[in-house]
């Protein structure tokens, strides 16, 4: 649902780059006049707010949070954008004041690496186990050429098994 973020932020960054360029130009030619920068649109604010989480309403992204506190945060983003800050700078601003919890994901340093490293490691371990199981039980087939059906003493299972084989043959 939120993958269009991948598209949106780039366009924002593009816009910001342009904005910065303009600001740089004005800074050279005239006096710094950031107040004259156009008011950032709601979409530009939301594109950044989407990635931030306000501690007042936990687990709700800032762009959709209805509380007054969050509305103030969005206004803050707008103000910072008007000052010409980049998305990264704005995030850093919020992290400095409110802590790492405002980010949608733990920042990638120190202890937090665990959150990114452990799932793939466990998954690979699982994949290795599956591989071993497949290999381990694959070998016996070569010893016994034709795979014998598993011995069943349960007549019900036998019947099922037979039904299944029949259907499998029917199908082909």
């Amino acid at each position: 649902m939120k993958l269009n973020r991948m598209i949106r932020p780039t366009s924002t960054r593009f816009f910001l780059a342009g904005l910065l360029f303009l600001l740089a130009l004005t800074a050279v030619t005239f006096q710094p006049a950031s107040a004259q920068a156009p008011t950032p649109s709601d979409d530009e604010v939301n594109a950044i707010a989407k990635h931030l989480y306000c501690p007042v309403c936990e687990n709700t992204p800032l762009d959709v949070c209805p509380t007054v506190a969050c509305a103030q945060w969005r206004q803050q983003i707008r103000d910072l954008l008007m000052e010409g800050r980049t998305e990264q700078e704005i995030r850093d601003y919020f992290v400095a004041r409110y802590g790492d919890r405002v980010l949608a994901e733990p920042p990638r340093y120190g202890f937090n690496w665990l959150v990114y490293v452990l799932p793939p490691v466990l998954f690979l371990a699982g994949a290795f186990v599956v591989y071993r199981v497949l290999r381990g039980s694959y070998r016996p087939v070569q010893q016994v050429e034709a795979p014998p059906p598993p011995p069943d003493d349960d007549p019900y299972l036998k019947r099922l098994e037979e039904e299944l084989r029949r259907r499998e043959q029917e199908g082909q």
Binding site: L122, A125, V129, V130, R132, V133, S137
Partner: peptide, 11 residues
């Protein structure tokens, strides 16, 4: 996870 290692691997 590790139980499964054994569950599956040790026939």
């Amino acid at each position: 996870m590790d139980q499964t290692v054994e569950a599956a691997a040790q026939q």
